[in-house]
Nucleic acid binder design. Structure first.
Length: 441
RNA sequence: CGGAGCGUGGCGCAGUCUGGUAGCGCAUCCGGCUGGGGGCCGGAAGGUCGCAGGUUCAAAUCCUGCCGCUCCGACCA
């Protein structure tokens, strides 16, 4: 992609309304534009990141055997009355009427709808266990939206739902998602820690919040260093084998990991040796629940057992704040100059900078490099504009692409280009071919 | 929902107290110079001063009402 043909309205100055670093950087990097309080348009650069995150979440859900579907953003009030939540949810739920006067709502979550879908399609114990998920926009009319996309009113969320014959089977589904979450966040380069959590308005009796580490995060967490060093991606785990995932879940849940509101200093010191105690800040990006038959009973989502009895299914739900993660990732990965994307979610892998757009040799070298990088399957943002070098460096640092490939007339005469690693600041002068080999390899 | 504050060109702000025909920096456009960390010179364009009403010879400025946005708190992915 040529920068001259890419809609990237970056800002040199800080917008006044943005207080926290991720919000500020997202606005400055031209990723989002606010439409109303807590409601954002995703500009091309922001959208690219959102899609990358979404894809990682999707791949890991698929890996866990969940089936993707897509439920609507708008729901009718009927099911919500059946579950009793139409009254409970309060003003956070955006309600309105269609032209026929029917009560509609913009879905803040989907337990009712998915339960109804399952009820209609599953009748027998043979239809469980089942796990369904979708990635869809939701709306919660927060009293006070803030922190940009981290606490917006409209947000993109992955929510998965599990349906099982009994509690033990439901717990297996829960463990599967638990490990899937560890994998999902690890793939984004994040350190995520599951914390025992209050269940909140969704209800139920087992729940973990997944908190990612970020120095600017709003939550204080206390935990054991070993959890942060745990390598889940390095293991070859069969998620469908409970014997393999159970020890992992037991290990994690056996360690001290609490947020400040649940923290007990004496208990912390008792459980964690002094040199392993970690007190850091974090952001909640995922939440998993087991809630049994809370929805299946009132909505009559039952299956028949082998004996011919009809029993309500045991359910769990598993959420990931996809759009929130964009902000969360920036909170975790930024420096003075701007964003520092982990490679797995970066909007482009390489920023190709032509320092002298008017120079024929530079132009040819850059066109050639862009073509070859793209042939190698790498995404490239090629700055082919007439801006001054300083402006180009500053902008490229701001948008945080992992690699900068810098081509200037002086280097070219010497047969070299410069490869800069955004995260470490490391620079290498090497031949264009060597740079290609390093990036493509 | 309680408390605080802010709405003036795309962005950041001054001007409001003390009414007199709207200004600065950045960005944009044109020309030239420059060319490894948001460069320089010259020229240009761009604003119903959030909206409505009122006071006044005259309102960005004073008064009333409304709308929007932000921050702190309570609440949440």
């Amino acid at each position: 992609m040529r920068l001259s043909r890419y809609f990237l309205p970056t800002l040199k100055e800080n917008p006044a309304e943005a207080e926290i670093v991720s919000h500020r950087l997202m606005l400055r990097a031209g990723m989002i534009r606010q439409g109303a309080a807590g409601i954002y348009s995703w500009l091309p650069l922001g959208n690219a990141v959102l899609r990358n995150i979404e894809q990682i979440v999707r791949e890991e859900q698929d890996r866990a055997g969940a089936n993707e579907l897509l439920m609507p953003t708008i729901q009718s009030s009927d099911l919500w009355r059946q579950s009793g939540r139409y009254e409970d949810y309060g003003k956070e739920m955006l309600r309105f009427k269609d032209r026929h006067g029917r009560e509609m709502l913009y879905g803040p979550t989907n337990e009712e709808l998915i339960t109804e879908i399952f009820r209609a399609g599953a009748k027998s114990y043979r239809d469980v266990p089942a796990m369904l998920y979708h990635i869809q926009w939701k709306f919660r009319d927060e009293v006070r939206p803030r922190f940009g996309v981290m606490r917006g009113r409209e947000f993109l969320m992955k929510d998965a739902y599990s349906f099982d014959l009994d509690q033990e089977s439901a717990f297996r589904a829960y463990r599967k998602q638990f490990v899937t979450y560890l994998r999902t966040f690890a793939r984004m380069g994040l350190k995520a820690v599951p914390m025992e959590a209050e269940t909140g308005p969704i209800g139920g009796n087992m729940s973990h919040e997944f908190v990612i580490l970020a120095d600017t995060g709003e939550t204080e967490i206390f935990t054991h260093q070993d959890l942060l060093d745990y390598d889940v991606l390095g293991q070859d785990i069969d998620l469908h084998d409970d014997a393999q995932i159970r020890p992992i879940v037991d290990y994690w849940t056996g360690q001290y990991a609490r947020t400040d509101d649940m923290h007990d200093q004496a208990e912390f010191e008792r459980q964690v040796p002094a040199d392993k105690r970690v007190q850091r800040r974090g952001i909640e990006v995922g939440h998993i629940f087991y809630f049994g038959t809370k929805y299946s009973e009132p909505l009559e989502a039952t299956v028949s057992t082998k004996d011919g009895d009809s029993v309500p299914v045991h359910m769990g739900s598993y959420g990931v704040g996809v759009s929130r993660l964009v902000g969360g990732l920036i909170e975790a990965f930024h420096d003075e100059a701007g964003i520092v994307w982990p490679e797995s979610v970066a909007p482009f892998k390489v920023g190709l900078i032509n320092l002298r757009a008017g120079d024929e040799a530079c132009r040819q070298a850059c066109d050639d490099l862009q073509a070859k990088l793209e042939q190698a399957g790498l995404t490239v943002l090629h700055d082919d504009t007439e801006d001054s070098p300083g402006a180009k460096f500053a902008q490229m640092d701001l948008i945080g692409l992992p690699w900068q490939l810098i081509v200037g007339p002086k280097g070219l005469k010497a047969g070299t280009v410069e490869l800069k690693h955004r995260a470490t600041g490391e620079r290498d002068e090497l031949s264009p071919d060597a740079a290609l080999a390093k990036l493509a390899g």
